[in-house]
């Protein structure tokens, strides 16, 4: 890694944490080797030619299944990236300077405390964003082959973060939160754990509430054969309506079918009993609440906006704390 072009505190930061930089480069290289290797292996495994002209991987194609598995784990690991970045910034980058006393050295040079912290955070941000970009690139190499399969849909946790822009926003927020927590808790390990925890909560909470940002679309159809979610959408809720427009509890007729003797043995009887029951209760319509795939980018933008606001707030607080303590 060339440190020749860097000046001042940026040179110091890169020099000081060069091992972490190499670790990031190694992590990218290893994941590229794994995913790239699996793609090559998969490409060499023949697919089954179906009669209608489609080619699909066989169920026992180990290369394809391994690739899917790697991506499922990979997407989970990408969710840990903001936690790792935050913990690194909070612990080794900031808290350790206070814990080991080297801040007494750093803060009495000609560079102002704000410049010192800024150089650390900008360096960390640049490296973290580049690493994220590289890892997302690697993920896409694999994802383009298996996208849309079980657990790897556009709205699935992991895939959703790894295929949009929201992961960059998470990483930015992690840097800022780390800078704040690292200064408030001047102990390396405690600060790392606290920041990991905070970022974990942020990832979980936003992951839970992101599908409440936009209003769902609703599709309806007459009661009868199952209504499938249109537009490759993410199903939020399905249900039945009576002619008066009231919600009807599907369980009522399901239980009636279950009580009726012979429904589990006779083909088609279950469906018939259930349909008769629903007709008796006046059920006329079925509906699906869903997010169409077109909600992907607006949701990404709203979530990123929230994270950037969090990042800005945390960064502002981090610099305020620094100024309050060190004139």
């Amino acid at each position: 890694m060339s440190t020749l072009a860097l000046k001042g505190p940026y040179w110091v930061t890169v020099r000081q944490y060069r091992r972490t930089l190499w670790l990031a480069v190694a992590a990218v290289a290893v994941s590229l080797a794994v995913i790239g290797g699996l793609r090559i292996w998969d490409a060499q495994t023949p697919e089954i030619q179906l009669e209608d002209g489609y080619r699909i991987p066989t169920d026992d194609t180990r290369a394809y299944e391994t690739l899917r598995l790697a991506l499922e784990y990979g997407s989970a690991w990408l969710l840990f990236l903001p936690l790792l970045v935050g913990a690194f910034v909070a612990g080794p980058l900031v808290a350790r300077e206070f814990e080991s006393g080297t801040y007494k050295l750093s803060l009495t040079q000609s560079v102002s405390p704000a410049d010192w912290l800024r150089s650390k955070l900008l360096t960390a941000t640049a490296v973290a964003l580049l690493t994220t970009l590289a890892l997302i690139g690697v993920f896409r190499i694999g994802w383009s082959r298996v996208s849309g399969t079980y657990g790897l849909g556009w709205a699935d946790r992991g895939s959703y973060e790894a295929t949009g822009i929201v992961l960059f926003a998470y990483v930015l927020a992690a840097v800022a939160v780390g800078a704040l927590v690292g200064q408030l808790i001047r102990r390396t390990l405690v600060a790392m754990a606290a920041t990991g925890l905070v970022m974990g909560v942020v990832v979980l909470v936003l992951g839970t509430f992101r599908w409440s940002f936009l209003a769902v679309k609703t599709a309806t159809a007459p009661a009868g054969p199952t209504l499938w979610t249109p537009e490759n959408g993410l199903t939020m809720e399905t249900g039945l309506l009576t002619s008066s427009g009231a919600h009807f509890d599907r369980l009522i007729c399901w239980e009636e079918a279950a009580r009726t003797p012979g429904t589990d043995a006779t083909e088609g009887l279950w469906g018939k009993v259930e349909a008769q029951c629903q007709a008796r209760h006046g059920v006329t319509t079925q509906y699906v609440d869903y997010h169409p795939e077109s909600h992907f980018w607006p949701t990404q933008l709203i979530e990123s906006g929230i994270l950037l606001a969090l990042a800005a707030l945390a960064a502002f607080a981090a610099f305020r704390v620094l100024r309050a303590r060190h004139p």
Partner: peptide
């Protein structure tokens, strides 16, 4: 070198 980088011109 850090001393030089953090105290440019001095």
């Amino acid at each position: 070198r850090m001393g030089r980088e953090l105290n440019p011109g001095r």
